[in-house]
Design a protein around this nucleic acid. Structure first.
Lengths: 203, 203
DNA sequence: AAAAGTAAACTATACGGTGCAGTGTAGATT
DNA sequence: AATCTACACTGCACCGTATAGTTTACTTTT
């Protein structure tokens, strides 16, 4: 337990980050003034600038948190003895759990908001994430080598799974045209995604 | 042909709209000042305001174009005598042609940019589009009634197709992390999407 | 001559960021 | 217990800049 040792400074800093996360998410990065932010954090504007050199630095700190969170992605190993539908479905569901989480989506909103008009910078950030999206890819490769899937292009096949997932539980939530999925919905999404994938690719 | 009858006023108006479309797309709505816009349109700032009451009005005019364009979506009819893969693949490809077009995506960028922080307004706009996405849904229903598909939930099944499409040719392009698909890529996407769908649902 | 366009200056406002004088606090020294 | 010290927080004025929209005085097009 890391608890009772927060200096006053650390408390303030955290208050700023919390307020920033919430306010950026609510009003947008552009729409949030540093004055508003300081007010919400119940901190003087000067204190904000004592902790963060600029608005940009504050934003990047938050996006850094996102990157850190993404590295927690589950990396289920392929099990040659288990049923394909069962294990793929479970792997997908655990990946959905991350992608669907409020925290993850909200931070992504801030990031997309910030990078929407800087395609090259966004592309760089996305590359970091691309490295992460290999959990399912590796599983597919393993199952293919094991001879339980028919011939396929791993990139494309993994992409199909991700498209099926994200189209239901990420993109609409990112742009806030659909609510975040509940546990049952996530489970069903995982099941039917695995089922469709295996209908096509299982030997 | 509607050609040689453009008044000077109409020419100026169109120059403003063209410049706005291009500049909003390039620099973002927030990032585009009305001065910059007038300069690019080679028109005085006053002229801009003579044609459009406000920046907001100009934006909405462009988004209106988007809506108009979306209504041109193809509505392929189900043919009980034709091969499922062939006709579904063709239907999907024609839908991709719209969704993938530079024009469509660029206008969507402007729209999302503008509505990103107004979830309720965005939701209303999206509802208009939801009505459009019924081409494939209708085809599925028809094929189901004809007994050539197994039991399914039309909403979900059509959603799966759209997720498979948009995940490859719309979302990444919207946020500019991937280039627009060329004809061959579109064709292959349509083929493999239809194939996967039918693997799972065809009787 | 009426309608539309032009250039440039102007209004009003908002925002990112800085400087500074003073205040609160926690821990070390007396 | 009283005092000292280092450091962080506060509040506010202030600067420079950007931007939506307007006004004015003049020119061009039809």
């Amino acid at each position: 337990m890391t608890k009772r040792k927060l200096t006053r400074s650390e408390i303030k800093r955290q208050a700023i980050l919390d307020a920033a996360k919430q306010t950026f998410q609510e009003l947008g990065v552009q729409g949030t003034s540093m004055d508003e932010l300081a007010a919400r954090a119940q901190v003087s504007k000067r204190t904000v600038y004592n902790h963060f050199a600029s608005k940009e630095a504050l934003i990047m700190e938050l996006i850094g948190e996102l990157w850190q969170q993404a590295t927690l992605m589950p990396q289920g190993a392929y099990d040659p003895t288990a049923d394909l539908q069962v294990q793929l479905s479970a792997l997908i569901e655990s990946e959905i759990a991350v992608i669907c989480s409020r925290e993850y989506i909200e931070l992504n909103r801030v990031a997309f908001d910030h990078f929407f008009h800087q395609p090259e910078a966004l592309q760089k950030e996305v590359e970091k994430f691309a490295a992460i999206e290999t959990g399912i890819k590796r599983w597919i490769k393993a199952a293919r080598v094991d001879g339980r899937l028919r011939e396929l292009d791993t990139e494309i096949a993994a992409g199909q799974i991700h498209n099926l997932i994200k189209g239901s539980c990420f993109w609409p939530q990112l742009v806030q045209v659909a609510p975040i999925l509940n546990e049952k919905e996530r489970h069903e999404l995982a099941e039917r995604t695995a089922a469709m994938f295996l209908s096509h690719y299982q030997k």
